[in-house]
Simulated scan of single mutants.
Amino acid sequence: MTYSICMTDGTRHGTAIATKAPAVGGLAPFLSPNGVVCTQSIVNVPLGPKAARLLDGEASIDDAIPTLLRKDDNASLRQIHGVDTWGNTSTFSGDECVDWFGSQTGSAGQTTYTVAGNMLEGEHVIEAVATEFASAVDSSKSLPECLLDALQAGEDAGGDKRAGTAQSAALKIYDPEDPRLAHDLRVDDHEDPVPELQRVYESACEDDEAWEDEFPGAILQRTL
C-alpha cells in the first residue's frame, strides 16, 4: 500500500508519501532541481534516480517516465508519477497493480500536482489527498504544511485497504531559496508514521530556528 503526492510551483518541488512497508523515504521519492518523481507499487527503485537524472538534463517528466518504463520488463507491476519545473505531469499505473489503484493530476494557483496510490480502500483516498492539498495551498500555508496535511487526509480517508494505516512516511522538498533541515524528513518504521512525521517536522523547525538564532544570516547548505 502506498499513496503519495508530487508538486511543483515552477521553482520549488516537493513530495510526501506513506506506505505499509519500512523506509519508504529511501525507496520511492526522488528530487531534482527540475522536478520530483515517486516510484511505488512493486517498486523498481532505479526508476526514481534515473528519472531524476533525466530531469537534471532538462528532459520533461512526460518524456522521462515513458522512456524508462519501455525498458522495464515488469512495467505492468509499477506505479510512478511526478511533475517537472515546466509544469508537465506524468502518471502511470500498470494493470497488475493491486486494487484500488489509480492517480489524478490537478492545479491550485501556480502549483501543479499529481497524486497516486495502490492497494487503497478506494479512489476517495487520493481524492482526499488532492482536495486537502489544493485547499491548503489556497490557505497560504507553508509548503511542508500543505504536503503533510494532504498526507494526513489520505490516512483519514482510509488509506490501506488492509489495515488503514501506514508503516513509514517521508517528506522531501527542493527549495533553492530555503534549504532547511525540515525539508528532508523520514519516519522509517512506526505504528502511526504520518502523525509522527508531523512531529518530526515540528522538531526540525525548532532546530532550524535555533540554528538561525545562533548563527544569524547563516544558510544551511543542502545540495542534490
Results as ranks from 00 to 15, higher is better:
Glu212His: 10
Ile17His: 08
Ala59His: 11
Arg70Asp: 15
Cys38Tyr: 05
Ile173Pro: 04
Lys20His: 14
Asp72Lys: 07
Ala59Asn: 02
Ala116His: 05
Pro49Thr: 11
Gly109Asn: 02
Thr67Val: 04
Pro46Tyr: 06
Ser107Arg: 14
Thr67Trp: 10
Asp149Leu: 08
Gly158Met: 04
His81Pro: 09
Asp56Gly: 12
Ser107Gln: 14
Ser60Cys: 06
Asp178Pro: 00
Glu96Thr: 12
Ser103Leu: 00
Pro29Gly: 05
Arg78Trp: 02
Lys172Phe: 03
Asp73Ala: 15
Lys50Asn: 13
Leu77Asp: 14
Gly102Trp: 10
Asn118Ser: 00
Pro176Asn: 04
Trp100Ile: 00
Arg180His: 13
Lys50Tyr: 13
Ala166Pro: 00
Val36Glu: 08
Gly14Arg: 01
Thr85Ala: 14
Cys38Leu: 07
Asn118Cys: 05
Val83Glu: 06
Gly117Ser: 01
Trp100Phe: 11
Pro66Ala: 11
Gly117Arg: 02
Phe133Arg: 04
Pro195Arg: 07
Val37Arg: 12
Gln104Ala: 11
Tyr174Lys: 07
Gln167Asp: 01
Phe30Arg: 01
Ala75Asn: 10
Ala210Met: 07
Thr91Leu: 04
Gln104Met: 14
Ala28His: 09
Ala108Gln: 01
Ser140Lys: 15
Gly106Tyr: 02
Trp100Glu: 04
Leu148Asp: 06
Ala218Thr: 01
Asp208Ile: 02
His13Trp: 09
Pro144Gly: 06
Ala23Trp: 15
Glu209Ser: 01
Thr67Ser: 13
Ser135Asn: 12
Arg186Val: 09
Ala52Pro: 11
Lys50Ser: 13
Glu196His: 13
Glu58Ala: 15
Leu120Gly: 06
Thr112Lys: 13
Asp72Tyr: 12
Tyr201Gln: 06
Thr85Gly: 13
Tyr113Ala: 05
Asp175Arg: 07
Thr67His: 13
Leu224Ile: 13
Ala153Pro: 00
Ala134Thr: 03
Gly57Leu: 15
Thr105Cys: 06
Glu145Lys: 12
Ala210Trp: 04
Tyr174Asn: 13
Ala75Ile: 07
Arg12Met: 09
Leu69Asp: 05
Gly94Asp: 07
Cys205Leu: 15
Met7Pro: 06
Ser103Gln: 00
Leu27Trp: 13
Ala21Tyr: 15
Val37Cys: 10
Ala153Leu: 08
Tyr113Asn: 00
Thr89Cys: 08
Ser135Arg: 15
Ala21His: 14
Asp188Pro: 05
Tyr3Arg: 01
Leu148Tyr: 08
Ala64Arg: 07
Leu47Gly: 09
Ala136Ile: 03
Ala16Cys: 12
Thr39Tyr: 01
Glu145Pro: 02
Ser60Trp: 08
Asp56Val: 12
Arg78Tyr: 10
Gly48Ala: 14
Asp188Ile: 12
Asp178Leu: 10
Thr2Asp: 07
Ser103Phe: 11
Thr91Pro: 00
Asp160Ala: 03
Asp207Phe: 05
Ala166Gly: 03
Ile17Tyr: 03
Glu155Leu: 08
Tyr3Pro: 08
Val187Asn: 04
Ala16Asn: 10
Ala18His: 01
Gly217Trp: 06
Gly94Trp: 03
Gly158Leu: 05
Gln198Ile: 14
Leu55Asn: 03
Ile173Ala: 03
Val194Trp: 04
Gly109Trp: 09
Val129Pro: 04
Ser41Cys: 15
Ile65Phe: 05
Glu202Ser: 13
Leu197Ala: 05
Asn44Val: 12
Gln104Asp: 03
Ile42Glu: 02
Met7Gln: 03
Glu191Ala: 14
Cys38Gln: 08
Tyr113Ile: 09
Arg53Ile: 11
Pro66Val: 09
Gly10Thr: 01
